[in-house]
Design a protein around this nucleic acid. Structure first.
Lengths: 231, 231
DNA sequence: CCCCATTGTTACAGAACTGTTACAGTTGTC
DNA sequence: GACAACTGTAACAGTTCTGTAACAATGGGG
């Protein structure tokens, strides 16, 4: 998915020309399609970084195309900007239901389109704020902010400690062996004594204070997070 | 400026209750104020995404409150919907002269209010985030004027510093890696040492004075703006 | 109750990271 | 063309992080 390639879908040649010209001037590579099936095919094959899709298309409705793009794993991740005639039914298109990233109503200024495209691309590059915030008892960790709190108190963790805690919490009570943790936190091909894990577990526990007790040693196996049941 | 928070200003408890109930049901967080000074204070402190303001208030006239909100850089960017008794003098309120975004005449149906709120928010949210005034604590940045103020003091920033600060503020507490910042500020295909970011962060911090501390180093990861929660 | 494998604790040195400063190249202005 | 402002890079210093190792404590099996 090269974010520099943009697929523009519209049946009107004038609009294709206008948008192509302006997007190219702004430094993008432009692909075009004139109907739904063509759009889907090109999106799958060329993996553009963004799609601009007219809601009014011959042959297949724009919302239908959008649905199919979002249903296909090869294209689901590509942000889509819809072109709509009037600001009608926009709620249904943008956001959860159909999953377009933004919409622009016709008539539009080419400059506006370029701005929107840039804005959407930027938003997509940002670390996902919707990245899951993990909570266990009083511990909350927010990966996008790289922040850990224990009952409202922020705890400073080093990168290693942070990843370690994240993996443990994500495992949700399953035991993780030292070797597995090495793979997950240190990377698959690193040569470090498994005992290193112990040291970091120790540091983690001590930084977490009383919450450190949630990390349980399973003798001979590894570490796990205590689930609420086993008090 | 969280667009989910809505400040309702009215001296009649009944109306506050009615609007609170309906807005909360629609998924908004509601703040309330019973007079002008209180409204201004809350708007500055809590940064709601929208204000609903009765034109008839004891103590200070609603239009006066509106004027003050629009004059303060910390609140100028917040859209305001006025509640008016009859459709009188509306031209003066809405639009250029006083700068409200919309008005609703009493009596109104709660449903109508919620719809208007959503409409205004949508209008405000989607168009160019580039031009929006961003405020964080004492820092206000106005992209359209390329101006940054820290508690009323204007700070001179170079273009790079400005963009850097803007991206950090817009990320709202999320950590931005050096590479990502290079993409966002320097452009997607530039070959600059990531360490360059450090230097500019340093310059930024020093120009911002005490506010420079809001920029937090996340060792091994990147930089982020301290959110109010993590004291 | 003892022994031994396993784990907790601590200290430490090298590595990695960031802050700070100076400097040179660029650009634009007068 | 001189000058100032702005940038990117490099070098140095200070701090923090991290893996290892040595030693103490623990706990389960016999």
């Amino acid at each position: 998915m090269e974010s520099n390639k943009i697929l523009v879908v519209d049946d009107e040649t004038d609009i294709l020309t206008l948008l192509s010209y302006n997007l190219k001037k702004a430094g993008f590579d432009v692909l075009t399609a004139k109907d739904g099936p063509e759009a889907i095919e090109i999106a799958r094959a060329r993996q553009p970084g963004l799609v601009i899709l007219d809601i009014m298309l011959p042959n297949m409705d724009g919302t239908e195309v959008l649905k199919q793009l979002k249903a296909d794993t090869k294209t689901a991740g590509i942000p889509v900007i819809m072109l709509t005639a009037k600001g009608e039914e926009v709620d249904r298109i943008v956001g959860f239901e159909l999953g377009a990233e933004d919409y622009i109503t016709k008539p539009f200024s080419p400059r506006e389109v370029v701005l929107r495209v840039k804005a959407v691309l930027k938003r997509f590059k940002l670390p996902r704020s919707d990245e899951r915030i993990i909570t266990y008892r009083d511990i909350t960790i927010d990966p996008s902010k790289h922040r850990v709190t224990v009952r409202k108190d922020t705890i400073d963790l080093t990168p290693t400690e942070f990843k370690l805690l994240k993996e443990l919490l994500e495992a949700g009570g399953r035991v993780l062996s030292r070797d597995l943790l090495l793979d997950m936190v240190w990377g698959q091909d690193c040569y470090v004594t498994p005992r290193t894990v112990d040291t970091h577990i120790r540091r983690l526990r001590s930084k977490l204070g009383y919450a450190g007790r949630y990390i349980e040693t399973v003798r001979g196996v590894g570490y796990r997070i205590k689930t609420e049941e086993d008090q």
